[in-house]
Design a protein around this nucleic acid. Structure first.
Lengths: 390, 390
DNA sequence: GGGCATATGTTCTGCGCCACAACATTTTCG
DNA sequence: CGAAAATGTTGTGGCGCAGAACATATGCCC
């Protein structure tokens, strides 16, 4: 860190910081004993007691005598997060489908609403109104208000919720955060879908151990999210990077962004259709079905048919790894359905040809285990990040 | 942030944090009054007094009655950093030249030693021994020991000082940190040259206001450093990204890294020579001289002659900007000598064709004002970062 | 089953750090 | 020259954590 000095800290910030750390531990790691909390947070028993007592008073946690026998000594009290005491609204605005979920403290899903809209139909305002209504219905059913709202949007978006451009939704300049904040009367945080996919995999997916990871997903376009030193990477003005618009093939196919040969034009949904021998714009089910059937074939068959696609995937990943030096790359959405042979081949390419990969050693490239859930989990975690540090 | 919870904090951490913030303010921003410190750090007068008194006791600062008249009221005491009370050793291991400098608290250079070695001559051990000797001589002259050591190396390097590979030095697997730490008996931090260039520009250069910036430099190869949210970006294992080995031209010239058409092969020193009509491997002075004379010509002349170079520069920058969303890109080393017309043209390309640039708005691309000093300043700041937070 | 070792909960005390208030000092301005 | 203003200086209080001392619950050994 450098530049202008950090602001000073007051002693009460310590309490806030420790409470936040404790809440995060419970939210991410699940129930545990007071003794474990003390050990993990490096705090004294008496301090943990004070913190937990405060949270129990507020109903956020419940203490109960531990059942498990671990040896001699008085058994420690188990601290259980109470999902309904503190919950957030998570929204995944997808190209074809929008989902609204209530996610409780600890990660339990308390309720879901979802609906399908044909691609690009309907105005942003209509959709936002529907989201607002769904959110209010969920709040009614749960009997309390959410502490925050997190939204995933597939596009170029600022943290305050201004959607600069979401090409596949045909949105431009939509103040999503402002609108939802007004409709639901709660703080709203908005993130890019791939960024939130990264957050989800890092919080509750395959990347919990990876301090530095990249999430690459193909929905319609290609998106990317980066976690660096356990924190989400964001650029200036809160905009997140657009991995999909890295030019990998100068003079290649034109992209709507104004460049030619963007990674998106080479491994996006259309490119995937071409690789699979399907017409561009085929329905999602057809693409996924074809990928699954290919995954059932001999590895060599998949590799041969998807040779070019695999090469461009590998090339883009080399660049991503060379620039960001992650220890893990997670492939999401449609890429999660790729045949293992294709993923392994791309991974091998990266290990062989990426300078940084050779230095870091042992970079893993894997399919997302959270799949379609990643975006909405990420949206929830985005909201929780703010809510738990309050 | 997510994943495993942050460790708890004790009340004494508050003092440490505030003292570090105060030291950084003085180091980076220069002398200022106690009143200004209180305002900027958001701390009470009494707290500032306690902190400053402690530092004055240790001789790190001196207080003196302020001279400037600013209005009514008792004039605030001026707090002056004492360069000789707290200094670091900064080392820039260059391809042709190695420099060792003593940099004092506040940024003043207390002394310098440097020498030139023909490219690739001499063993790492010899060079490290010379660095150690130069450091000891500087310490003798100053009359005290440095509080830390920072080293810039042009290669793939870990924060603990293990140089995985430095192709232009012909180094591989050199434990620079370990060796110098043993020789100088001080903590040693090692960074990649471009990373430290970024740190320098962000701390004392043109990028002090930019929370998110990228530094791109051509020394022999192409290096890059990223500052994100005022902190240096590092990948897994402490390795920094290698922007130079981003593949921008698949099937292009082979690079030692194993890929073809890396950015480095298109805008590295050799590519620059080709663009200027000089033989590859021309002496540095010839390259810089040719660039300077070209800068004196009509813009159109420079643009025409460097058309291809400018295009590849612009293309790589589009990728960098799309991935990282900086608000400022600083071009260092040889790139700092580029004719304005070339820089402006590349900047225009980025503004027109980078999706993220259009969203962020007003991305600036400028030549480094620190020039060759950047690396050693960065090395000093790296050491200070650790020393001031002790 | 009784006693001991062990681990944890509970309570109280002390220390460090900061904010705030009250007073002192120094300067400007009318 | 006195009032106002801004800051230095000093003492008090509150907050938060650690540690000690004691209480409690469990396992283990004889």
């Amino acid at each position: 860190m450098s530049g202008p000095p950090t602001a000073g800290t007051r002693p009460d910030e310590v309490r806030r910081h420790n409470r936040t750390a404790l809440l995060r531990r419970l939210h991410v790691g699940g129930p545990c004993t007071r003794a474990e909390l003390a050990a993990e947070l490096g705090l004294n028993r008496s301090t943990i007691k004070a913190l937990v007592d405060g949270l129990a008073e507020a109903g956020v946690v419940v203490e109960q005598v531990s059942v498990k026998r671990t040896g001699a000594g008085r058994p420690s009290l188990l601290v259980l997060p109470q999902p309904r005491s503190l919950w957030v609204l998570a929204v995944d605005v997808g190209v074809e489908q929008t989902t609204v979920a209530a996610v409780g403290f600890g990660g339990e899903v308390l309720g879901t609403r979802g609906w399908t809209l044909p691609r690009g139909s309907g105005s942003p305002d209509d959709l936002l109104a529907k989201i607002g209504a769904a959110g209010r219905r969920l709040a009614e059913r749960i009997g309390s208000e959410p502490v925050g709202v997190g939204v995933s949007v597939p596009g170029v978006v600022r943290r305050d919720g201004y959607v600069h451009e979401a090409p596949n939704l045909h949105w431009e300049g939509v103040p999503v955060g402002e609108r939802l904040s007004a409709a639901l009367n709660r703080p709203v945080l908005v993130g890019n879908d791939a960024e939130l996919g990264a957050l989800a995999e890092h919080t509750r997916g395959i990347a919990t151990e990876a301090a530095d990871m990249v999430f690459v997903s193909v929905d319609v376009g290609v998106g990317g999210g980066v976690i660096s030193e356990r924190a989400a990477l964001r650029g200036s003005g809160g905009y997140v990077g657009e991995l999909g618009h890295m030019v990998v093939r100068p003079g290649g196919r034109p992209c709507y962004c104004g460049c030619q040969g963007c990674w998106e034009t080479e491994i996006g949904e259309d490119a995937l259709c071409r690789a699979l021998g399907l017409p561009e714009g085929s329905p999602r089910e057809a693409v996924v079905g074809e990928l699954r059937s290919l995954a059932g074939e001999e590895p060599q068959v998949a590799l041969t048919r998807m040779r070019e696609f695999t090469d461009w995937l590998g090339l883009g990943l080399i660049n991503v790894v060379n620039l960001l030096g992650p220890q893990l790359v997670v492939l999401g959405d449609l890429l999660a359905a790729l045949p293992d042979a294709v993923v392994d081949e791309a991974a091998e390419t990266v290990r062989e040809r990426s300078l940084v990969s050779r230095a870091v050693g042992g970079i893993r490239i894997v399919a997302s285990p959270l799949g379609k859930e990643a975006k909405i989990i990420g949206a929830a975690e985005l909201a929780f990040q703010q809510a738990l540090s309050g």
